[in-house]
């Protein structure tokens, strides 16, 4: 039996990476799925998936999206951007971009969709291990994910029991954003090799590793789960940052 049969879902930022992994998994499990992004519809999006050209940072865009979709059972706030800078190096434009999408975007979508969600609905926010522990030179990104974690708890407390709200905290997942991080290193190849040795799983995650917990949180199997963080990181944050033998 398909685990999301009969459910309608929105996944923001489903063009690529983790978002696309979630879109594909939700469709496979029988959901009716819509996704959105700032660009026109990607050519390789599955035919059954609806596309909305939406900038989640803009409240008017999000209100249009919500009106177009109407009732919704599952909302996944996945859309996110990162800027690889310290606080001292960040500009006002960096703040507007990162906080606009990662923080205000999640708020905009939750505010617009909460009144349209049916009882038993599930909001899934993509937080990050970086909301709990700092990735170097990712100051605004780290802070934006901590915002997502705080908002997740608030929605769970304020809108339960009708609506559940949880966050998934991915570790290092093989996406374009991960490669952008390694490109910052003096020796990207060495950095990648050592990063793998820091993972008890000895590999990076894949979008489908995150999609599988998103399916669980979207399904009625998780009906007692709310206000919590579901970290999927190959064991990275279970271990101390001090690893003798690694630089």
């Amino acid at each position: 039996m398909m685990r999301l049969a009969g459910k309608t879902a929105l996944v923001t930022g489903g063009r690529q990476g983790i978002g696309r992994g979630i879109v594909d998994a939700f469709i496979f499990e029988g959901a009716t799925v819509s996704t959105c992004g700032r660009d026109p519809r990607p050519d390789d999006l599955p035919e059954t998936c609806n596309w909305h050209q939406t900038d989640v940072a803009k409240p008017a865009d999000v209100e249009l999206l919500a009106s177009a979709m109407g009732a919704c059972d599952v909302v996944v706030n996945n859309a996110g951007v990162q800027v690889e800078k310290t606080v001292a190096g960040s500009s006002d434009e960096d703040w507007d971009l990162v906080m606009g999408v990662n923080a205000r975007g999640v708020f905009n979508v939750c505010r617009a969709f909460l009144p349209r969600m049916s009882a038993g609905g599930s909001i899934i926010n993509i937080g990050s291990i970086s909301g709990n522990v700092a990735d170097p030179s990712m100051a605004l990104y780290n802070a934006s994910k901590a915002f997502v974690h705080g908002l997740t708890r608030s929605i769970a407390v304020d809108h339960g029991p009708a609506i559940r709200c949880n966050a998934i905290c991915p570790g290092w997942i093989e996406t374009g954003m991960l490669d952008a991080g390694f490109d910052l290193a003096d020796d990207p190849v060495k950095a990648k090799t050592e990063a793998l040795l820091r993972h008890p799983a000895r590999r990076f995650g894949k979008p489908e590793d995150i999609a599988s917990i998103a399916v669980w949180l979207a399904s009625d199997e998780s009906s007692f789960a709310t206000g919590q963080f579901f970290t999927v990181d190959g064991g990275l944050t279970a271990a101390s940052p001090l690893q003798p033998g690694l630089s």
């Binding site: 708890r153 399916v215 007692f224 190959g234 271990a239």
Partner: peptide, 18 residues
């Protein structure tokens, strides 16, 4: 399905500790 999940503490409490 959980093949990348390890070393974590999975709280399931109906939101109590949130």
């Amino acid at each position: 399905e959980a093949r990348y999940a390890s070393g974590q503490l999975w709280v399931l409490d109906g939101g109590l500790s949130a």
